[in-house]
Design a protein around this nucleic acid. Structure first.
Lengths: 247, 247
DNA sequence: CGAGGTCTTGAAGACGATCAACAAACGTGG
DNA sequence: CCACGTTTGTTGATCGTCTTCAAGACCTCG
């Protein structure tokens, strides 16, 4: 699902849904027309702000973004990491109000799908509606997996788990090369993701490196020992629901 | 939304969806017919097992239940607490495979909605489909709030937050009396929920009691100082999306 | 009455946070 | 092209929260 220069923005969405089920030609053409209003964001810019009431949902066409919630003291917790093809706020279609912000972790290109269009899809293309619904359900499954990691796993294991997850998600969209992938997160952002201090993130990464499991340099993560990493993380990929089935 | 003896099981579902939007008479009658096969579960029994592929979704009519994931060493993490009126596995309709189990925290009564029926609803009653979708989105919003609490808040604050959340959710279904509500969780289960050891749960509760915020005895939680508790939790109820709006 | 679950307490230790300082990399403007 | 400020990564030392282990009290229920 590598995005090419000439790609129509709707293609990103079509490929996204096709990961989980087959689409008819009519459905594809509906999706192709659904995505409009391409926008670009710089690093640290908000794609969507906490508390906002969007009238359209944002499809991440290229780049990395994160959902986050701010705390009173200025700290924050990242609750999801998004990659190309993800809908970062599809849920705002029905929730109306954003309970979190979405920030660009790298330069981002996005498309917009008006809520009006989403509503029409639910009215006239129930199969597409189910696939969109499915995508929000997978977000929820990932949330749950993160809860387990934060609640019950030590930092190394949690970190290993995140790396395994991102590797599989990025491979599914053709953004890996062998055991490597680009991940433009600072250690501070990693800390906000895992609920750790920046210092501890640094030491945890050193531990993974020392164990020969992972190399992480210049935003390139390389998994040197998948089995070892997955074992350390107790990683079971089923929560990602990567298989295609009729829905 | 107190469940009465003579209640039709479908009424629980109708009231659930009516919390968030108005329903037509036709929609209500569809929902009334959707819920079948009443079942009873004892404490610690699984309503749904991890890895299962249900052909129906389970509506909790009465009692408390928890979603959980087991770890290799036998420990577990609870990722959601469900109260009367909640769909504990609506997501299995589209995800197909359960990525977690659901266990009864108290004796439970449940109804079943066949996935076939849910599919028909998506085909013929898009507005109902949106409201069902909405309910899974609110689950996700709660997951995110828990992630923030686990990642960035100390144990007392996290505990306070959970109590605030459950109070509002239970009040919305008429299961509170003044500042009190029944919550049949052991301290061990609370630990599995918050990602804490049982010992620390105990000491954290003592702290809340000593601060005059909460009393918790014989499964009855009493909030003695809502403002103090909410302040300690930095509690903002907006993530519960308790308001009714056209969807 | 005994057995098992739940709650409580104490003591010791581990994991991760915080504070502080410095090194390295990067972008920007002069 | 270099100088400089800022961001990011790294290290050491200390501190605190929470865990683990162990034991005893309390309670419920057969």
């Amino acid at each position: 699902m590598q995005t090419k220069a000439g790609d129509h923005p709707g293609d990103v969405l079509i490929r996204k849904l096709e990961q989980r089920d087959r689409l008819s030609e009519e459905e594809k053409s509906v999706l192709a027309r659904a995505v409009a209003r391409i926008r670009e964001f710089a690093v640290d810019e908000d794609l969507v702000r906490e508390g906002e009431r969007p009238t359209e949902s944002t499809l991440l066409i290229d780049g990395f973004a994160a959902r986050y919630k701010g705390l009173a003291d200025g700290r924050r917790q990242i609750t999801a990491i998004h990659v190309a093809g993800d809908f970062v706020d599809l849920h705002s279609f029905l929730l109306h109000r954003m309970d979190h912000g979405v920030v660009a972790l790298s330069p981002c290109r996005t498309g917009a799908v008006p809520h009006e269009t989403l509503r029409e899809i639910t009215e006239r293309y129930p199969h597409l509606a189910r696939l969109l619904w499915l995508n929000t359900l997978i977000d929820g499954a990932i949330h749950r997996e993160w809860l387990v990691a934060m609640g019950r796993r030590p930092a190394v294991s949690q970190m290993a788990h995140l790396i395994c997850e991102l590797f599989l998600r990025l491979r599914a969209i053709g953004r890996t090369e062998g055991g490597s992938f680009r991940l433009p997160l600072t250690q501070a952002e990693l800390g906000d993701t895992l609920g750790l201090s920046t210092v501890h993130v640094n030491r945890t990464l050193q531990e993974l490196r020392a164990a020969g499991l992972v190399t992480w340099r210049d935003q390139i993560v390389t998994i040197n020992d998948w089995d070892g990493l997955a074992a350390m993380a107790e990683f079971d990929p089923s929560f990602l629901y990567l298989e295609s089935e009729p829905r």
